[in-house]
Design a protein around this nucleic acid. Structure first.
Lengths: 196, 196
DNA sequence: CATATATTAGAACAAATGTTCGAAATAAAT
DNA sequence: ATTTATTTCGAACATTTGTTCTAATATATG
């Protein structure tokens, strides 16, 4: 099975939507990928739709949408220092915004700017931005964000040793911290961004 | 001047594009905002276009775009394995796409999926995605992408020791590799993405 | 080579859609 | 109240566009 045309068509549609803001018509696709007949394009579109890579509304023009398309982003707030007493996502804690693809977006996402090198062995560096899903409670072995004493947010591994639960840094020079009532889980770390 | 209908139309268009991924037709707008005639809608669209709030292509269906909604992201290709002989950014090397904010975008950007752990001490892990700027030549101390023997792309530190230049991994178990004629610099690594 | 499968082409059709014009209705201004 | 501007309507028209069917061509498969 020759996927060249199919891929060519798919990426053309995606780029058209990204750059122009709307889907191409079938004849525009035909011209772009050097097919003389609209039905040839239909043939490939049907296959792409069967594969779940595209969607369209029947009998409606320019309603092709790429299911994988990243064109729609939503922004999530970046939290820096936690102002004493203020709720985590209060305006005064916000130092910026980061955008995530809509297919990965949920209302529960926010981002945290890493301060320090306690997770360096996990590849999380000072000033990296980590995205946190408040809707997912970190489990053993996960990297999670935790609130300590309601004033400080920290990112650590969560692990159980014996029958106690610990915040475990990824850096030998720091020590495990037992999770007591002054530690509240915030959510699970799901992705990371770094400017180099 | 009564702005109710105009605003109603504008927000309907924006929502339709956000939720469905494509613009409504004029008749769909008419029905939604309770106008009986398509030309009534045209009347408002003309005003919205004059105000610069909307754009459209003449004689093309569903090409309304909200200028406020234009995607602030552009996609850059992700390159995986390099097919022997094929140019770096050839279609056959492409394994996906990643989006970067438009203010950081340039035509010189592309992304590379990291294979292996040779840069682990620089916080660059297996399967991370690094974005590379082909327009910036990596300097001493920079992390750069390099093409080896025109068949393999690698990400390493660039460093000068004595009067020789080396590709320097960030992992003790790998060794420096002297830069000779079979190593071509591709560009500088500028950012990094990771799914956790 | 013969057969099946995948791909492309061509044409014709029906429906969706944008465009235009004049007139009617409504609201605003004088 | 009269005039003016704004908004809506209706209908007709020209294109654009998606859909479908059949046949031709290329590509793979045994």
């Amino acid at each position: 099975m020759k996927l060249n045309k199919q891929n060519e068509i798919l990426t053309f549609i995606q780029h058209k939507i990204e750059n122009e803001g709307y889907s191409p018509s079938i004849r525009e696709i035909a011209e772009k990928v050097n097919l003389k007949s609209t039905s040839s394009v239909q043939y490939h579109l049907d296959n792409l739709i069967k594969k779940g890579l595209l969607s369209k509304k029947p009998n409606q023009s320019r309603t092709l949408t790429s299911n994988k398309l990243i064109s729609t982003f939503k922004s999530v707030p970046i939290v820096g220092e936690i102002a004493a007493g203020a709720p985590l996502l209060a305006e005064e804690n916000k130092i910026g915004e980061i955008s995530v693809p809509q297919d990965k977006f949920s209302e529960n996402l926010f981002a945290l700017k890493i301060n320090g090198d306690s997770m360096i062995d996990a590849g999380i560096f000072h000033e990296d931005i980590v995205v946190i899903d408040k809707g997912v409670e970190p489990k053993n072995g996960d990297i999670g964000a935790f609130m300590i004493n309601e004033t400080e947010a920290t990112v650590k591994y969560l692990d159980t040793i014996g029958n106690k639960r610990y915040l475990v840094p990824a850096n030998k020079i720091y020590e495990n911290q037992e999770i007591t009532s002054n530690v509240q889980p915030i959510g699970k770390v799901v992705s990371l961004f770094r400017d180099i």
